[in-house]
Every structure is written in structure tokens, then in C-alpha cells.
């Protein structure tokens, strides 16, 4: 099995602070591998354990990606192919870049997280599948079986579960619940820096980037919470809570 896992680098959202006056986010924070990308890597590693083969992490991101991609390698991906330069980021462009990289090789299975935890738009897997003209199985909660050039998955949809079969190659996007991503040990992190990372340039890929979207604003809503801390003697604490409850309802 040759498995590609398309992963995304995102801002460490917990560290994103908001400018009080303007409500703008301060994006000067470290980046990290998205949680759902980790679910996708984990699933790929489990498939490799069972069926053998290779796991290749693929990503398009900023200059920081050279560092961020190590998280995927530390988890156990064999190698990575990345674009690591500034470009107009949108679903169209990323899908194009990923599909160009993917089409240079022949993967049996291409895994994604079902959405990313920052933008949550869930477009990438279907877009790449369409560009590669292969089927997609999105929102997969369990991969039941891979054999004879076919894959069977259980999808976790809004109103139903669905068991679906597709021929390989195929794009699969996984949910947050499909597995518990492993946390790499120190030795895996050290090993990661020796794994091959192929950095390709947008020039080499010859992609024509587009920019159909205009962001008019991106502001945090006003959060005006009192943040009053209640602690100490349990009896007193309970009394105070009851007072608040009585006042509010």
C-alpha cells in the first residue's frame, strides 16, 4: 500500500490573542499540525502496520511548514513532500498544489482530515478527489476493510451511518473520532529530523493560482465576561453559586 496523507499546518489557536480595541486576532503565534491531520496520519500508520507499504505526508503551507511537518514524521510517516513558501491560501489553490504533487506518483489511498480545526470548511478532500478524477469517501469513522483493490468504510453522517465501498485509488477523509493519534516519544522526534523531506517549489509545479475571495473583515466577537473566581471552603462556594443561580433565573 502506498498511502499519501494530506496534512495541514495551522496556528496554535489556543495562543491566538485578540486586540481588545480593534477585535483583530494577533497571528504572531507558533504553528502546529492540525488535530484532524493527526487522525489521518494515525490511520495511515495503522494501515501500514497491517498491510505494509509507505506513508507519505504531503502539505502546502508557509515557510514554517518545514518545521511543522516534522510532527507528521515523528508520528511515523516515512517521508514528506511539501510546498513551503508564501502563496495566496484558499481551497482552490491548495487543492491544485496537492493534486499536482499527488499526480506525480501513484498512491493507492489518499487520506485527509474531514475538515481543519481552524477554517472548518471541509472542501479539500472532495476537491482533490475531483482533480484526480477518483472517488471520495468523506467523514469516515471506521475503515472496515482494504483488500483486492477495494476499500470499505463506515461514514458518520448527520442523520445516518453509511457503509460504502470504493475501488482504489480513492480519497478518504477521516473524523476526529476514528482513532486516538499517538504522541511521539523523544526518540521518534529525533528520528524525524533524519527523514527525507522533499521541498518542491510552486514554480516547479507550474500551478496557476487564483484568488476569487475577498476577506472584508475577520474580527473576534466581543466577549465581556466577568471572570470572577469562586473558590475556597466548599460550603461557602456552594452558597455563592446558589446566590448567582437565584439571581439569574
Amino acid at each position: 500500500m502506498k498511502i499519501a496523507v494530506c496534512v495541514k499546518e495551522i496556528y496554535n489557536l489556543e495562543q491566538v490573542k485578540i486586540i481588545r480595541e480593534t477585535r483583530e486576532p494577533i497571528l504572531d503565534v507558533p504553528k502546529k499540525l492540525d488535530d484532524l491531520s493527526k487522525n489521518a496520519i494515525e490511520e495511515a500508520l495503522r494501515i501500514r502496520e497491517k498491510h505494509g507499504g509507505e506513508v507519505v505526508a504531503i502539505s502546502a503551507g508557509s515557510k514554517d511548514l518545514k518545521k511543522t511537518i516534522k510532527e507528521a514524521l515523528a508520528m511515523g510517516a516515512d517521508r514528506a513532500i511539501i510546498v513551503s513558501e508564501d502563496f495566496q491560501s484558499n481551497a482552490e489553490n491548495t487543492a491544485l498544489i496537492l493534486s499536482k504533487i499527488l499526480s506525480k506518483d501513484s498512491f493507492d489511498l489518499i487520506l485527509f482530515g474531514d475538515a481543519s480545526s481552524d477554517e472548518y470548511s471541509a472542501q479539500m478532500a472532495p476537491r482533490v478527489a475531483e482533480l484526480l478524477r477518483i472517488p471520495q469517501i468523506t467523514y469516515v469513522r471506521e475503515i472496515k476493510e482494504i483488500s483486492d483493490g477495494k476499500i470499505v468504510c463506515i461514514r458518520d453522517m448527520d442523520y445516518y451511518y453509511e457503509t460504502v465501498e470504493s475501488n482504489l485509488p480513492c480519497v478518504v477523509s477521516v473524523t476526529n473520532e476514528i482513532n486516538e493519534p499517538r504522541i511521539p516519544a523523544l526518540k521518534d522526534i529525533l528520528k524525524a529530523s533524519k527523514k527525507p523531506v522533499d521541498v518542491v517549489s510552486l514554480n516547479d509545479l507550474k500551478v496557476e493560482l487564483v484568488n476569487p475571495y475577498q476577506i472584508l473583515e475577520n474580527l473576534a466577537p466581543e466577549i465581556d465576561r466577568k471572570q470572577e473566581v469562586i473558590q475556597g471552603d466548599l460550603k461557602e462556594v456552594v452558597k455563592q453559586i446558589v446566590e448567582v443561580i437565584r439571581r439569574e433565573i
Binding site: L13, I18, Q214, I215, L216, P221
Partner: peptide
């Protein structure tokens, strides 16, 4: 059209325009 959607995991609300 101008649409609003959450961004940055819900930290912000994005107003975005497209033809």
C-alpha cells in the same frame, strides 16, 4: 455575495465576498 462564517476555530467571524 457576502457571507459570514467562523474562522480560526471560532475565535473570529469572517466576512468574505466572492463573485
Amino acid at each position: 455575495i457576502i457571507a459570514t462564517r467562523y474562522s480560526l476555530g471560532g475565535k473570529t467571524l469572517m466576512k468574505i465576498k466572492t463573485d
